[in-house]
Amino acid sequence: MLRVENLRKRYRTGDEALKNVSFSVPAGEVVGLIGPSGAGKSTLIRCINRLVEPTDGNVFLNDLNVTRLGRNDLKQARRRIGMIFQEYALVERLSVMENVLSGRLGYVSFWQSFTRRFPQADIDKAFALLDRVGLTDHADKRADALSGGQRQRVGIARALEQDPELLLVDEPTASLDPKTSRQIMRLICEICAERNLPAIINIHDVVLAQSFVDRIIGLRAGEVVFDGAPDALTEDVLSRIYGEEDWAVLRRQHDSDESDDAADPKKPVEERLVELV
């Protein structure tokens, strides 16, 4: 259970990224966070585990006030919050297994992590997760040898290795092709259901969000302008979130996405990376 109360963030440049954001997410619910770029989606997610320091407001994880914690307690709290990143953010030169096990770093001593001697329970869990995301055979490969979809699966396994009580997901599909995007979204939602895990998924693809999540929060210029079921997301509401014109453009883009199956501009880069390995 996550509760966000009156969260504000003002950057040193004076930009107000978040203005008084409040909502709560009960266990097992997957929330899609949508909004135009610059609306503060990324900031909001990072304020929850304080990768970005919020200026004001409170974040409660179950009954723990995350915003009031000191350095060490914050580390303890971060262990309980799994995060999945845009562009995967795997440590590319470490093996898949090391990446997954890095989810246990908050639980083991520096010496254990330095010598890579993790407790057998952690290793069992890592193997089980790799099995769950379908990558058992890749455990000893280097992370940069995998394709985009596979890397994101490792990212998911790393987050789950933490045994999180909350999942923060930042644009999980931004660098993936439409088909892989759907697979990844399905995997995340299935796992959340299996574990009764609350999740916030920051996502730019409205149609994709609608077809998978339980609830949608629309953010515009740092304010919540919509909070409700995916079905309630009418054209009207979307225009309110994205602005009249942008929404029309976005919808057209999405239509062409579906038709030619490869409209993501980042994809060629990623493919090249895979070829290089």
Binding site: S95, M97, E98, R116, F118, Q120, I123, D124, K125, A126, F127, A128, L129, D131, R132, T136, A139, D140, D163, E165, E194, R195, N196, L197
Partner: peptide, 19 residues
């Protein structure tokens, strides 16, 4: 909410970093 649902098919399998 731990790994009861992810019943491990491979429990006890050791792992060491490949040198």
């Amino acid at each position: 909410m731990t790994s009861s649902s992810v019943a491990s098919p491979v429990a006890g399998r050791p792992w060491r970093k490949r040198p």
